[in-house]
Design a protein around this nucleic acid. Structure first.
Lengths: 170, 170
DNA sequence: GTTGAAACACAATTAAC
DNA sequence: GTTAATTGTGTTTCAAC
């Protein structure tokens, strides 16, 4: 990943789309609430609607804005319980990893999964109605794949949750 | 068809708004892509646009749909690195917790934070450009608050990430 | 090439049936 | 729940800078 290439000389290849502070501010607003009218955004950043709209479209085409989604309330959707699962395995093979990938893809309660460095090989974020449901997910997993260590960490309280990532590194 | 009214006996207080399988399917689509035209949604669930729209509005008013947001690409936003931080503290006081809450609120790189059961008291999800930036965040934290144990788990690969929570428990 | 104002089209919203 | 009218966006166009 050699993304940022501050080319001083030579010919500029094909890419290197840059975004400025105005784009950042637009993104910030859109990450908080994507149905903010362009009108409101444009006057917030001191631009008229047209250039503002063009910037948004540009960020979408560049893939910086991936998509727009609705966020659902966990409690009201009857899945108030969040559990993190730390997983270790002795099976360090590509085949095992692929089967693991398939497994978590099939389970909608698993909303996030990462392969890590260190002693814990994987971490999963699971969203369920209650402990009984969690247990069902847990069993479903261990009967399909072999783990050497599974450590469940139950969330008692969500201190912070946002889908808005920092824009100040653009 | 009349409104879904499963209640046969007893008086349920003020709330108890129910959602059926059609609502689930609408939610699923909206969680994947919120600018799916209502027209497309309605024909997918076998409804005409108006009742479909009324359902969406109802879910918004009920707070089931919290909001609509844009999702930004981590890599293109120059924050490709995800780090989980497992934190333990010896300071089990409400005051410490409040200061901790303030701290993570102020740091935009911290996108998620949970208070846990077990030996690890808190888990944080942090999103940064590189290890140097992570170190800066780390230092910022430990100089403002006292931790008894900090365990950084660096993500090598994102196996799964979705903001779509399961709808089948509604 | 970039901007802002004004016209256009379409989807969301409302009202009536 | 269906159909139709309305409003308000997003989107495009175009003249001006």
């Amino acid at each position: 990943m050699t993304e940022p290439r501050p080319r001083k000389t030579g010919s500029k290849p094909i890419e290197s789309i840059t975004f400025d502070e105005i784009d950042q501010r637009i993104l910030e607003m859109l990450q908080k609430d994507s149905d903010t009218p362009i009108q409101a955004i444009s006057e917030a950043v001191g631009l008229s609607t047209n250039p503002c709209w063009r910037r948004i479209k540009r960020m979408e085409e560049a893939g910086l804005i991936k998509k727009r989604v609705v966020l659902v309330d966990q409690t009201r959707a009857n899945v108030p319980l969040t559990v993190f699962i730390g997983i270790s395995t002795s099976r360090h093979e590509i085949d095992w990893l692929n089967r693991f990938r398939d497994l978590i893809d099939e389970i909608p309660e698993v909303v996030e999964a990462y392969r890590l460095t260190g002693t814990v090989d994987y971490i999963l974020k699971v969203v369920v109605p209650d402990m009984a449901s969690y247990d069902a997910v847990y069993k479903q997993m261990i009967q399909r794949l072999e783990f050497s260590q599974v450590n469940s960490m139950i969330s008692m309280e969500e201190l912070k949750f946002t889908t808005a990532i920092p824009t100040n590194y653009l």
